[in-house]
Design a protein around this nucleic acid. Sequence first.
DNA 1: ATTAGGG
DNA 2: CCCTAAT
Length: 280
Amino acid sequence: MGNQKQKWTAEEEGALLAGVSKHGPGKWKNILKDPEFAPLLTHRSNIDLKDKWRNLSVSTAAPGSKEKIKNIKIKAIAATPVASIPNSAPPLAICYNESSDAVLDDSSQNAAEGKKENAPRYNAMIFEALSTIKDDNGSDANAIVNFIEQRHEVPPNFKRLMSSRLRRLVAQGKLEKVQNCYKIKKDSLLGAKPSAPKQKDVKPQQSLTSGLVIANESVKDAALNAAYRVAEAENKSYMAAEAVKDLEMTLKSLEKAYSMLQLINEINEKCSRGEIVLLA
DNA sequence: ATTAGGG
DNA sequence: CCCTAAT
């Protein structure tokens, strides 16, 4: 069974992030010793942590150092009636730049010389906040922002940066959003391989998953949320610079929500006809 | 023994 | 990820 493809899992990444926020960057040995993270990072060396942190730093805080004009087809959104999202199925050609995961970090608000952290700091802060608060229901964005504000120095547009970051983490499956609250995603299904939940198999079976209802709610919520954000984006479209990054995510959300809707409709249809389906 | 940086 | 220099 070949190498475990020493690929970094979400759990490991989360542990690293949390560890860095607790011990500080560069204290790899401490993080590795910390009983909180040790179990998750058993197969990682201090050097591995360092390397991973470096990788995260560049991919999260340096999309294109050369101000590559981000040209998103805003027209696509502006021309798409919000009402068309829930029911009909217009071609909905979503297209955006090749910018994979542009995040737009600050990287220039270090007035305090006490901390020398620089990079994926925000993600780390989020994990720190969530793991410290430990609320079963999770914490809403405001609570998270509050927690971080009283513990770190933050820029004025921090709240906005945070909501963006939170959405992204949710999209990546690193966080889980219940209602308006965020939790650290447990997600330990069969060793947590990201390749597992990729294919949805709709096959006849004797068991009916109650997850269908949940899925339906999630999709509905996602669709409404996306729709809302589109409307919001339209109103704020004149704030191009600020809105661009949100539009990117809105587009992704739309794409996802839309495809999920299609799936749900398909399933719902079959269910209505008496067929029993199982979501794998 | 640990860390930072280049390969 | 591995290797190497520097602390």
